[in-house]
Design a protein around this nucleic acid. Sequence first.
DNA 1: CTGATTAAATCCACTTATTGGATTAAAAGC
DNA 2: GCTTTTAATCCAATAAGTGGATTTAATCAG
Lengths: 401, 401
Amino acid sequence: MLFGTNLDRAQRFNRRVVLETIRVNGPLSRADVARLTGLSAQTVTNIIDQFKPAGLLIEKPRRTGGRGQPPIDLVINPSAAFSFGISFDDRRLVVVLLDLGGEIRGQAELPVAHPTPGVILPLVEAAVNQLVSKTKISPELIWGAGVVMPVLVSQGHPTALGPSSVPDWQDFPVAEKLRERLNMPVFLDNDATAAAIGELLFGAGRQFSDFFYIYLGVGVGGGIIISSRPYRGAFGMSGEIGHMMSVPGGRPCPCGNKGCLERYVSLSAADAAFREQPETFAALDLDELYKGFETKNPRLMNWLDEAAEHLRNAIVSVENLFDPQAVILGGPVPDTVLDALIERIEPSLISVSHRQGNASSRLLKAETGLDSRVLGAASLAIFDSMTPDFSVLKKEAIEVE
Amino acid sequence: MLFGTNLDRAQRFNRRVVLETIRVNGPLSRADVARLTGLSAQTVTNIIDQFKPAGLLIEKPRRTGGRGQPPIDLVINPSAAFSFGISFDDRRLVVVLLDLGGEIRGQAELPVAHPTPGVILPLVEAAVNQLVSKTKISPELIWGAGVVMPVLVSQGHPTALGPSSVPDWQDFPVAEKLRERLNMPVFLDNDATAAAIGELLFGAGRQFSDFFYIYLGVGVGGGIIISSRPYRGAFGMSGEIGHMMSVPGGRPCPCGNKGCLERYVSLSAADAAFREQPETFAALDLDELYKGFETKNPRLMNWLDEAAEHLRNAIVSVENLFDPQAVILGGPVPDTVLDALIERIEPSLISVSHRQGNASSRLLKAETGLDSRVLGAASLAIFDSMTPDFSVLKKEAIEVE
DNA sequence: CTGATTAAATCCACTTATTGGATTAAAAGC
DNA sequence: GCTTTTAATCCAATAAGTGGATTTAATCAG
């Protein structure tokens, strides 16, 4: 439904525009911000004055060199706000504390045997409280927490298409329950979307406004960034690249179709190739698998070749459908595996992105590394508070501060 | 780049919100609009007063029945604005005059042998002038013209990946040249995107904010509507569903890959099946082909079965990637062909859109029919002037009225 | 038939963010 | 030491949305 806006909302929007412009474009003077945003210098001054009490911006000493009065450079104060990232599956729970600059300030990791809500929620609460007291950050600087778990998320709630490794969470109101316990805004998202947002804020996506993030994990998912915002689809389930048809009539998939990409390109598929057995859809021994990659196990090297073929076709489709600035490959796999895949895929990609004069590499490796998942989770709250989204103009939108 | 907004832009945005809300939601009182948009009743009154001089809105007699003072219903005046649609290929040129209600007020159709700019531009100018004088509409009510031709459009200019049926237009500044001749805003777009916008404004897409339009023509293209706006990709070439890989290692495609969907699902592919010959990539005899469909030619019926298979896989991928509210199938093909395809595809579609409780049909037939292309072209200017887009808030945005 | 009730539309004074022009400040150039 | 240039700020003006009060016009209850 459409909505109108007003003076209030417009300023809230402008505040975010100013903040995000400074965050992305490095040290910037008030005059620079005015030029970049189209706002008047006076307006920029006013808005920046509003940020001062919260300490969100740091003024650097006047920079000399050119003519005229030297500008005062502004940068984001990384210690002005914090966010928690929470990630778990059927093996472990990870909680990280991220600052506004994208640095990890604290981390807790716990083994988990039975990831039921009754077990996980208290553990999360304890870990968060412990991190707060250990790092001595003041609670009002915490903008929120993001949660990622191995489920699909539709309209804020966990859902699943096939069997799940965390079945107890189906339709459980995670965000609400955690909000009550932690007393801060809580966001739940798909792993791929969260990782894409993490990459957008702090990683390889920083330079792009439109990219497709491929999250290679136990399955394979996609996070879509359009106009510097996540696109979650009409029902929150977009980006399911793993269930694109890769081999007509191929391997059966729990989703009900045959030949889905995920059955060929995923850690689960790699594991099957490694063990020379069909996929079991049970918990994987990831350490074993990582070791196999490290020792260049021939079955895994073989799998890499095959996986690259399948993935290339999927990327061609993605490029042809989205025409993004880049496709970014990441997820909880060793860097060497990502490199190996990219090396095999890139040279022979033909799509609309193959345009003349486009010499730049279109398939990039994610920068957030093995922790992309939990870093993505942590970036959800920061993203929500900082982005000059359309919805900021809406009445229901949430206050930046 | 980010941009700020101001009071001025905010009102421009609100004006469009009010107008579009009334256009879509039928007769609405000022109070209704206030409730739907979140604007105050006073603001709605003010904005509607601004539209009165231009005659954009019509007040219907007070509606009685309920308690309280009866509301005054408002509807869009279809005769308050007009737009031209211009479409040509290597066979014919079509120019239509559309009103704000989506009705065709006038139409001109001319055969074309050599569609060079030198031939087409004067013909268009003459046709437009003739339609203006014949329908006696006043020139200041014309919001603009949209152009569609068989090329890909990237950043406002014609480009091509493979061979083109209108090679003389490569990188030709169509919009600029026509703007000079017609003295009105001119928009150039891909056929699929234009048809999708037409469907969004006046067709099956009216009820949706997120859908994928499949344009089945000589080739097959896709128009993406996200949040009620077209998504053209980072470089304007999104939606190229025709070059998704359908058969690994399959029929060679001029794009450089093998097994592209378009080599199996398109009028060109149908024609090849009809003639039992490989594709020639020369001009098709469409009338012959249409006749073949009408007489239920067995080779074409066979092609329908095969095409449906390929198209189904592509739609599964599209649904899994975009999670749209619907996929709409249209283009310059007989209704019976669209029906036949949908009938074969729909029942066995499995994707994330296959969610529980989603009984609604996900694959729909376009409503704009055979003329989807030129109607889409005509809707470009109307869309540009009416939609409460993000960009309206920008300094550079164009005035509504 | 009359007064109470309900809802729409408008009137009016007020608030507030942005703006544009003027002013001040601080450097470099000549 | 004066001029030029640029940044940042001061100040009065502008204009759109808001909230409360008022007017208008219908239905409902007695």
